[in-house]
Design a protein around this nucleic acid. Structure first.
Lengths: 134, 134
DNA sequence: TGACAGGAAGACATTCTGTCTTATCCTCGG
DNA sequence: CCGAGGATAAGACAGAATGTCTTCCTGTCA
């Protein structure tokens, strides 16, 4: 039997990456950017298929103006990160994200900036709690 | 062209999960646990194939004693979490884990325990820095 | 020794993924 | 208004991954 489909495949991700760098893009724009300068008709078709699948997943939006559709990203990188983290949590931690956080804090080599960001967050959280909010 | 193989597939994960719950297990033990009571000869073969692939990935260890091999987990859940997180970071963040941490802190609904753990970590980190170690 | 449990190797169906081909459609220039 | 050309839609396709099963071989124990 099949397995769980990847939410976003590598080729799809390549398309998304380009879309994250601009407001809009046509299929041709994307094909040019991804498959070098001389993007044949087949490259365009490939990109279009990827866009179709991304559309079905709700990760890109399409604006059908003029002659060629214009595609834009409907999910940013952070949203993708969230999906992957949640998927990992679902498979390995019964859906809880806390073990991931623990792992990152314990195992990952964090630099000073990361730690500073954490400190800031913890302070914010402490302040919130002090005020009795949430 | 093919895609990047999943480091651990769902069926393999089911095997690992059982192994995490005990010290040792034979193929039959695992088949019984995973495929209900009456594990036919085919279930055993399936489990064995999965173990073979896990072995190739270095995720289980085999001790060849007596009549049946005994398998044990060579990677715990946290190691798997680390793999997945790094893979996500590689694909979405040029290998940096920091954005994942940021996401968890900003987006995930952390409960009091999680925040307490974070506080403890930050304090530890501050102390380390103060002592000039590391 | 002979039946048999267990292991190794490989076949297999299904699905996914990335790519390409074909057919249809729309827009623009003439 | 019509033809040309690019764009879209639909789907065929090969290669690979995955989960399962079959087959054959090996060792063990009665």
């Amino acid at each position: 039997m099949g397995r769980t489909p990847k939410d976003v495949t590598d080729a799809e991700l390549a398309v998304l990456r380009v879309l994250w760098g601009r407001e809009d893009a046509t299929v041709r724009d994307l094909a040019d950017e991804i498959y070098g300068g001389e993007s044949g008709a087949s490259s365009s078709a490939t990109v279009q298929k990827l866009l179709e699948r991304l559309l079905a997943k709700g990760l890109v939006a399409r604006r059908t103006g003029g002659r060629a559709h214009r595609y834009s990203a409907a999910a940013d990188r952070d949203a993708l990160i969230g999906r992957r983290l949640q998927e990992t949590a679902d498979k390995l931690c019964e859906g809880s994200l806390a073990p991931l956080l623990t792992h990152l804090v314990n195992e990952a080599r964090l630099d000073a900036d990361d730690i500073a960001a954490l400190e800031a967050f913890v302070e914010r959280a402490a302040k919130r709690r002090q005020k009795g909010r949430r």
